[in-house]
């Protein structure tokens, strides 16, 4: 797996961004950038050739689900893998995210093992589909 993968971490809580970043670094992914909500993330995605997005759901400005929909609706970004890491744990939310085209869904609080598993699974599926 390409450890130099360019990852965008989107979360309104700076502590959570740092934690996700730390965990990704532990897994060997050191090429990370941060955004504090969908509205900040969107222009970065437009210009930044990111290869993977880890996003929270509930954020002010633009939520993670809206960001996901914007990504799927954009011709150039449509296939960008998006991993949702959120405290939203209701069935309805999970189904909504799946229908919006999420690639993985992690419920907070989560562990490093879960993060590793989900990222690997996303790339396995991408490789199988290719």
């Amino acid at each position: 797996m390409n450890k130099n993968l360019k990852i965008l971490i989107v979360d309104d809580y700076s502590t959570m961004r740092r934690i996700v970043k730390n965990l990704l670094h532990d897994l060997g992914y050191t090429n990370t950038t941060e955004a504090d909500d969908g509205r900040t993330a969107w222009p970065m995605l437009q210009t930044g050739d990111f290869e993977f997005v880890v996003t929270d759901w509930n954020m002010p400005g633009m939520t993670g689900i809206d960001l996901l929909r914007a990504i799927r609706g954009d011709a150039r970004l449509a296939t960008l893998p998006v991993l949702m890491v959120t405290a939203e744990s209701q069935r309805d939310q999970i189904v909504e995210a799946a229908q919006a085209g999420v690639n993985g869904y992690i419920i907070k609080p989560f562990t490093a093992v879960t993060l590793k598993e989900k990222i690997e699974r996303i790339f396995q599926r991408a490789a199988a589909a290719a």
Binding site: D11, I19, L23, A112
Partner: peptide, 16 residues
């Protein structure tokens, strides 16, 4: 140290 960093997740959740 990794576990210590991870344990700070509580701040996001309790804050919400």
């Amino acid at each position: 140290l990794s576990a210590l960093a991870q344990a700070q997740e509580y701040q996001d959740l309790s804050g919400q």
